[in-house]
Every structure is written in structure tokens, then in C-alpha cells.
Amino acid sequence: MPATLTLPSLAPLADLPCDEPELRYHRCPWCGSATGRAALLCPICGCPELVERVSAGTGTVHRVLTPRHRQFGFYETHCLVVMDEGFTVQASLDDALPGTVPEGTRVRLADPADQGHLPIFRACA
């Protein structure tokens, strides 16, 4: 008699918590370094056993990049954000005109509703 495979029941999408913005990264269990989510190996020691973690969502603007033209004549401010966990991510700054956000500004991950291919951050009050 063949064995029966039972799959766990999955919660409907409406029941999943999606109110909080979330940014994931990898932490190396050997050397403790943090890296972005696209890494397959630790860039410091080469460990293949990276552990996925959820970032607190706060960081500091390290460098503001050249403004890029957006649809309908609006500009989007892109920057490099050094997260509090130690990894760097390219991001977009919400509600920021080009040239108005100095390096060193503290930022927080914005609402996930507007997120595209880059995470969106807002300056902390």
C-alpha cells in the first residue's frame, strides 16, 4: 500500500501579516558578517551556510547617487544605505527631492505598498 503524503494547510493570503515592511539579509554563522540577500556565499570567509534574518529596517544614508528620471517628470532619489545590522543596500528615498538628503541621515524602511524593485526608505523624524 503506497504511503499517503499530507501537506500542511496554508493560510490564505488575507490572513498573513503584511502590515510591517520587511527587509531580509543573510548572516554568516562562522564569521558573523552580514550581507545582502542575493549572496550565496559569505563574502568574508566563503561559508555556504548563510542564515536568513529580518532587518530592523533602520540605517544611515552612506552615499546619495545621481538622480534618475522617473515617469511623469518626477525624480527619484537613489542612495546607498548602511543598515544597522552591517550590510549595505541600494534604496530609493521617499518624499525627498534630489540634493535635500545629506549623507549621514538616519532612515527607516517605508510601507511595503509602494515598493518596487528597490526598497524605499524615509528619513527618521
Results as ranks from 00 to 15, higher is better:
Pro2Met: 07
Pro2Thr: 11
Pro2Glu: 13
Ala3Pro: 00
Leu5Gln: 08
Leu5Arg: 11
Thr6Arg: 14
Leu7Phe: 11
Pro8Val: 00
Leu10Arg: 15
Leu10Tyr: 11
Ala11Val: 05
Ala11Trp: 06
Ala11Glu: 14
Pro12Lys: 07
Leu13Pro: 05
Ala14Gln: 15
Leu16His: 08
Pro17Thr: 04
Cys18Ala: 14
Asp19Val: 01
Glu20Lys: 15
Pro21Lys: 06
Pro21Ile: 05
Glu22Ser: 15
Glu22Met: 09
Leu23Arg: 12
Leu23Lys: 12
Leu23Asn: 06
Arg24Asn: 12
Arg24His: 13
Tyr25Thr: 00
Tyr25Ser: 09
Tyr25Asn: 04
Tyr25Asp: 03
Arg27Ser: 02
Arg27Tyr: 00
Pro29Gly: 08
Pro29Trp: 12
Trp30Asp: 03
Gly32Leu: 01
Ser33Ala: 05
Ser33Ile: 13
Ser33Met: 10
Thr35Phe: 04
Thr35Gly: 06
Arg37His: 05
Arg37Asp: 03
Arg37Tyr: 15
Arg37Asn: 08
Arg37Phe: 15
Ala38Leu: 09
Ala39Ser: 06
Leu41Ala: 11
Cys42Tyr: 05
Pro43Asn: 04
Pro43Thr: 00
Ile44Asn: 10
Ile44Asp: 11
Cys45Gln: 01
Gly46Thr: 02
Cys47Tyr: 11
Pro48Ser: 11
Pro48Val: 02
Pro48Thr: 09
Glu49Leu: 09
Glu49Trp: 03
Val51Cys: 06
Glu52Ile: 06
Arg53Asp: 05
Arg53His: 14
Arg53Met: 14
Arg53Ser: 07
Val54Tyr: 01
Val54Pro: 01
Ser55Ala: 15
Ala56Asp: 14
Gly57Ser: 09
Thr60Gly: 03
Thr60Pro: 00
Thr60Lys: 09
Val61Ile: 15
His62Asn: 14
Val64Arg: 13
Leu65Ile: 02
Leu65Ala: 06
Arg70Ser: 11
Arg70Ala: 14
Arg70Thr: 09
Gln71Thr: 07
Gln71Phe: 08
Gln71Asn: 04
Phe72Cys: 10
Phe74Ile: 07
Phe74His: 10
Phe74Val: 09
Phe74Gln: 15
Thr77Lys: 10
His78Pro: 06
Cys79Pro: 03
Leu80Gln: 02
Leu80Phe: 06
Val81Gly: 11
Val82Ala: 13
Asp84Tyr: 02
Asp84Ser: 11
Thr88Glu: 13
Val89Gln: 15
Val89Glu: 12
Gln90His: 08
Gln90Ala: 10
Ala91Glu: 04
Ser92Trp: 06
Ser92His: 05
Leu93Pro: 02
Asp94Glu: 15
Asp94Lys: 14
Asp95Glu: 15
Asp95Met: 10
Pro98Thr: 04
Thr100Cys: 11
Val101His: 03
Val101Ser: 01
Pro102Ser: 13
Pro102His: 12
Glu103His: 02
Glu103Pro: 04
Gly104Cys: 07
Thr105Leu: 13
Thr105Ile: 09
Val107Cys: 12
Arg108Thr: 13
Asp111Cys: 08
Asp111Glu: 13
Pro112Tyr: 07
Ala113Ser: 13
Gln115Pro: 03
Pro119Met: 09
Pro119Arg: 06
Pro119Cys: 12
Phe121Ile: 02
Phe121His: 05
Phe121Thr: 00
Arg122Gln: 14
Ala123Leu: 03
Ala125Met: 05
